[in-house]
């Protein structure tokens, strides 16, 4: 975290530049959406751009690029739990993606062939 006035004056310019970059990235996200890519590719592109935007907000606006170790420690723990939180539904539905609802259960309930 900057505390001397000169460093803060330099940061002010950076804040406006990051703001402009976020505007441009938002425009790119919408423009890519207008191209009508295949759904998996569209999801990948949109989430990559959103992650870039998110990291800019976190590192510059939230000053995470120069924080104390305790903050990083708390956030690493949060990220680990977040990954678990996101993985649980993935594992749950991972074997039935693209299968019509009920079909997966129906195939399990069929008696084995003799």
């Amino acid at each position: 975290m900057h505390s001397d006035p000169e460093a803060i004056r330099k940061s002010v310019r950076q804040y406006f530049m990051i703001g402009a970059a976020l505007f441009v990235c938002t425009g790119i996200t919408v423009a890519v959406n207008q191209v009508h890519l295949a759904v998996p590719l569209a999801i990948t592109v949109a989430l990559i751009i959103a992650s870039i935007k998110g990291s800019m907000v976190a590192s510059v606006f939230m000053h995470l690029s120069h924080e104390k170790r305790w903050i990083y420690g708390a956030l690493i723990l949060t990220v680990l739990f977040f990954i678990v939180l996101m993985s649980v539904p993935m594992f749950t539905v991972g074997d039935s993606i693209g299968t019509p609802i009920g079909a997966a259960n129906a195939s399990h309930s069929q008696p084995p062939e003799r």
Binding site: L22, T26, T29, V30, N33, V39, A42, I43, A46, L47, I49, A50, K53, G54, V57, A58, F61, M62
Partner: peptide, 18 residues
């Protein structure tokens, strides 16, 4: 406030675009 902005950055593509 930046966190609230960050959440919206992900909500916008997930709900409006995909």
């Amino acid at each position: 406030w930046h966190f609230v902005d960050l959440v919206w950055i992900f909500l916008f593509p997930v709900l409006y675009l995909l």
